[in-house]
Design a protein around this nucleic acid. Structure first.
Lengths: 199, 199
DNA sequence: AAGTCCCCAACGAACGTTCGATTGATAAAT
DNA sequence: ATTTATCAATCGAACGTTCGTTGGGGACTT
C-alpha cells in the first residue's frame, strides 16, 4: 500500500533528524550525515523530501500545529479565565520542556527556513500569540491582572518557557509537573513572599 | 608601528559584522559578504582576524565581559539584598534589550564557536549564574523570597530577558525603563492583583 | 629595511542536489 | 498462469556551487 509505508519512513527520518538539527544546528548538519544516521544513501532522502530545508520545515510545522491545537482546546473550555490561564501555563511549560529536541528548532532555526515556509510559521505564531492575547484580555477586563501591557506579559512568559530548552533536563531535581507549578507561581505571584518584609 | 594592529578598524569591523551575524546567522553569513559590507577585500579581513570564527568569538567575548563587570559592580555594593536584586534585574533587562544585535549572538550562536572558545564562554556564563545564585541565596536566607529552587528562579528570569531579543524593539510603545520596571514587577510580584479575587 | 594594509587570484574541501540504473513488489493484460 | 508494465525504493557517482582560507605581490609609512 503505497503512501502508508512511506509515511512511516518519513516520521522515522524526522525523528532521527530533529535531535541532529537541535544539537548541531541546521547548517552544520549535512545531508551526508543525516543519511548515515538514518541508515540510507544520501540520494534516497530525496525520495521522501524535496530537499534539506523541507525536512526542517515539516518537523517545525508539525510541532507548531500540535501546540496550537491543544492551546485552542484549553481555551475553548468554559472554565474561569483564571483557571484557563493556569491550564495554559501548565500545558505550555510541559509541552516545551518535555520535548526539547523538536521544540528547540521552533525557537532557534526559524531563520534557516525558506522565506515562504518562514511566512507560514510566522503566521501560525501570530495565531498563537492571539490566543494568549485574548486570554489576557479576559483577565484584564475582569480585573484579575494588574495594569501591565498584555504583550509584555505574554512575551515574558514565552521567554521563561522557551529558555527551558537551554537548561532544563528531564530526570533532574525538578520534574515536569514541578517546573510547571513553579513557573505558574512565579508568573502569577512572583518570587517574593507576600508578607512583605522589606529587609 | 609594528605589533599594533589598528584597534579602531577591528572595532569597526565588529560593529558591521554583529548585525550581520545577528540577522542572518553565523553560518549563513559569508566572508565575501562581510568584506563587501565592510568595504574591503575578502583577504584583507585576515589581517585583523585569524578567521571567521574569531570574529564571532571576540564580539561575544566582549559583550560577555561587559555584562559580567557591571553585574559584579552592582553586587559589590552594600545595599539591601532586595534592592540589589532590583538593581540587577533592572540593569540586566536594559543591557539585553538595549543592545539586541550583539547580545543576540550570545544567545543564539554559542554552538557556532570552536570548542576551545566555547569553553571560555561557558566558563564565564557559569561565573555569571554564580553571581545570581549568591544573590538569591542571600534573599532566601533572610526569607525575602519563597521556597523556590534558586536555579529555576534564575533561569526563569534569564529566559524572560533573553527572549526580548526576539520581540522587543526600542522606539515601540514601551521604553527600556518601562520594560525593566514591568519585568521587575512580574518577576517579584507576579501579574495577578494582590487583592485576590478569584473570579 | 621593516611592517602595515590591501588586493587579485586561486586552492581544496564540503555542500545540496541530480542523474541514471537496479531491484522488487504489485497490478494489468495476455 | 504467465507475461508485461508500473512504480516505489534504493544506490553509486558525479555535477556545479559556495565556502573559508592562503600565497604572492604591490603601495605607503616609519
Amino acid at each position: 500500500m503505497p503512501g502508508t509505508k512511506s509515511q512511516e519512513k518519513v516520521k522515522e527520518i524526522q525523528a532521527v533528524v530533529a535531535p541532529l538539527f537541535a544539537s548541531k544546528g541546521y547548517h552544520s548538519t549535512s545531508m551526508r550525515e543525516i543519511a548515515r544516521e538514518v541508515g540510507m544513501n544520501q540520494s534516497s532522502l530525496y525520495h521522501y523530501f524535496r530537499g534539506k530545508e523541507e525536512i526542517l520545515f515539516e518537523i517545525m510545522n508539525d510541532a507548531m500545529d500540535q501546540a496550537l491545537i491543544t492551546l485552542k482546546q484549553i481555551c475553548a473550555t468554559d472554565l474561569l479565565p483564571r483557571d484557563k490561564l493556569m491550564n495554559v501555563l501548565h500545558f505550555y511549560t510541559r509541552y516545551y520542556a518535555g520535548d526539547p529536541e523538536r521544540l528547540n528548532l521552533l525557537v532557534n532555526e526559524q531563520q534557516s527556513l525558506a522565506p515562504e515556509h518562514r511566512r507560514i510559521l510566522v503566521e501560525k505564531e501570530r495565531e498563537y500569540v492571539c490566543i494568549f492575547k485574548d486570554l489576557f484580555g479576559e483577565l484584564k477586563r475582569n480585573r484579575t491582572t494588574k495594569e501591565i501591557p498584555r504583550s509584555v506579559a505574554i512575551f515574558a512568559f514565552l521567554g521563561m518557557v522557551h529558555y527551558t530548552i537551554t537548561w532544563y533536563r528531564k530526570g533532574g531535581p525538578v520534574d515536569l509537573e514541578g517546573l510547571a507549578d513553579i513557573f505558574c507561581e512565579i508568573f502569577t505571584r512572583g518570587i517574593l513572599r507576600e508578607d512583605a518584609a522589606t529587609t
